[in-house]
Amino acid sequence: MRITWRPAAAGPFVAAGLATVLLVASLVWGRDDEAGFLNGRQLRLMAPAGPGGGWDQTAREMQTALRTEAGRTEVYNVAGAGGTIGLSQFVRFEGDPTQLMVMGLVMVGAIESNDSPVALDRTTPLARLLTDYEVIVVPADSPVKDMAGLVAAMKDDLGKVSWAGGSAGGIEQILAGLVADAIGADPAGVNYVAHSGGGEALSTLLSGRATAGVSGVSELEGQIKAGTIRAIAVSSPQRLPSLPDVPTLKEQGVDVELANWRGVVAPPGITAEDERQLEDLLVGMTRTEAWRETLQRRGWLDATLTGAQFERYIADERRTVTDVLKKMGLA
């Protein structure tokens, strides 16, 4: 039953060889000899959340806006736990200036509420880029028509009003807690149902099981304009240009304001020279036509802030958020 070995074995080797050549070719292809301090290396940008969420969108818009200045940038997702899972992976890239991570207020809160062993002081903050605001939505066929209706329902039975949003301790849960606090209800009693990202929360809301949903304006804008969900309030100080018909929380008598800012950090231990050049790269990016067009299209507001000022800002935000979370019994 023995068959000749050589011809029989040749096929797979040819196939394996072909596969290897193709893979190597595709890898070599993927590189680009860009000039500058990156020295031909590719920037890798981590979005520490699931696809479709705010960080993911920010990272992918940056990928487009950075194309002329830094060549091709790779974006990848590390989902879960308000970005702290991504953060704990990210700090392992110590000293590598080609690794960047999108982060923001949500991560500041998640570090506190998850009691994360890795905090933001382990990273090198580069720049705050933009702010997005939160929007409170209800299903299109919900009996709740406006914020007054939602407040009345919360005052009636706080537990009956369920909120679908992002990860536990994230900005959406903070907003729900702040709203409860502002109307005199117990923030710790809010019935908040966590999801790993805005997309997943949206699918729970669309199924009609949750009373309300909270997410970034940019994440829900398409759905709101299509009429699948109804926006009842935004968390900004003034009405937003992208949703001019949606009143603010303050307009409707709920004294809450919450900005969901996002920025970029580098790994710990990069040189001061690399830090300066990365900051220049990011500031340069915010000045491009492509980025301005992105902000306009997404309904984001420019909030560029770099260096020591950004570090101080993070420290301030950390204090504020910790305070709120303690009140809610989350930190």
Partner: peptide, 15 residues
Amino acid sequence: TIGLPTSATAAVILT
């Protein structure tokens, strides 16, 4: 149909 990427590949195609 609803712009919801439900797998890693779908998310990349979305990009």
